[in-house]
């Protein structure tokens, strides 16, 4: 996602003029046939009738979306009320993702700035240290976090040994644990794009401001932040979007009470619910939310481009 966000359509030379479409053909076919077509198929499935224990009956139905938003009683004959179960799950996902984004920004921005302003070797080492967790298996990272914060895990053991608490803190299977997991999972996604922005920041702007008696706080808030805003927005999207559809953190660190969109969808296909059209509908709603965020981003980027030439 990083590259998609940070680099626009590249410049081009013409050595292989006329061959462009042939060279693109494999990517068109593979991605078109195995991603675009499947998403279209998923849209169709969300309007079909469910078959019990997975699969669909090819009969048009709005019941998946209806079930998502309305409660018509056990037999479907009562007057429709708003169904809060799924809206609550989506709402929880949105605020968990938003909170993770804010926390990542609070830690990630100073980190990115600090790294980008180091010189030579130190910079390369620090940057590399941030990059490694970015590539390490998310499943293993989530399991590690769960091990650390278990009731009888190392964190509680140490806190008790140091006399800070007497009873172990119960953290696993809470919203807090899910939040910690999301924050921990996507922190590097915040640091890297902000770093790229700070790299391009021209420090003589700060010097000019300081010559005009601006305080450090003013320099940071009035000069630096607006200049590195593209990186901040990119970082926020890279944290928010995967957090919104996260499955591992809510599944391993949260319990049944801390369901997020990802776990809800998974349950329709792999779990006991077995309602494919409903899972497809929930996926479509998630995808639409992500598209809205990305469109908002594209618009913000266009505006930024006009302002800075």
């Amino acid at each position: 996602m990083a590259g998609a966000i940070s680099s626009g359509p590249p410049t081009s030379t013409r050595t292989y003029q006329g061959l462009g479409q042939y060279l693109m053909l494999p990517s068109w076919v593979i991605i078109g046939f195995f991603l675009v077509l499947p998403v279209g198929m998923m849209l169709i499935y969300s309007f079909l009738t469910k078959e019990f224990r997975g699969g669909v009956i090819w009969e048009f139905s709005l019941s998946a979306y209806d079930q998502f938003f309305f409660d018509r009683g056990l037999f479907g004959d009562e007057p429709a009320k708003i169904e809060w179960t799924y809206i609550t799950i989506f709402w929880r996902s949105i605020w968990q993702a938003a909170l993770a984004t804010v926390l990542c920004l609070i830690i990630g921005f100073p980190t990115a700035w600090f790294i980008a302003t180091r010189s030579g070797r130190n910079k390369a080492i620090l940057l590399f240290l941030i990059t490694i967790p970015y590539w390490v298996n998310l499943l293993i990272r989530t399991i590690s976090m769960k091990f650390l914060i278990r009731d009888t895990g190392p964190l509680n053991t140490w806190l008790i040994e140091f006399g800070l608490i007497s009873e172990p803190l119960h953290m696993v299977n809470t919203n807090f644990a899910v939040q910690l997991g999301l924050f921990y999972s996507y922190l590097p996604f915040m640091v890297l794009p902000i770093y790229a922005s700070v790299e391009r920041y021209n420090n003589s702007l700060s010097e000019a401001a300081a010559d005009l008696y601006a305080s450090k706080f003013v320099i940071l808030s009035k000069i630096v932040l607006p200049m590195v805003k593209p990186g901040i927005i990119a970082g926020c999207i890279l944290v928010f979007v995967p957090s919104l559809g996260a499955f591992l953190a809510p599944d391993l660190l949260g319990g049944a009470k801390n369901f997020m969109i990802g776990s809800l969808i998974e349950e329709q296909f792999k779990g006991n619910a077995g309602n494919w059209p409903f899972g497809a509908a929930a996926s479509m709603i998630l995808l639409s939310m992500v598209l809205v965020v990305l469109l908002f981003y594209a618009r913000a980027q266009d505006k930024g481009g006009q302002n800075h030439g």
């Binding site: 998609a4 590249p10 030379t13 292989y16 042939y22 068109w28 991605i31 991603l35």
Partner: peptide, 27 residues
Amino acid sequence: GMLRAGKFRGKSFSFALINLPLMVPEI
């Protein structure tokens, strides 16, 4: 194709398509 073949039809669309797997949530 994107960097060495000049302009051709469907180029900007291709750029979006290649990055599509990164945009769509994994689930």
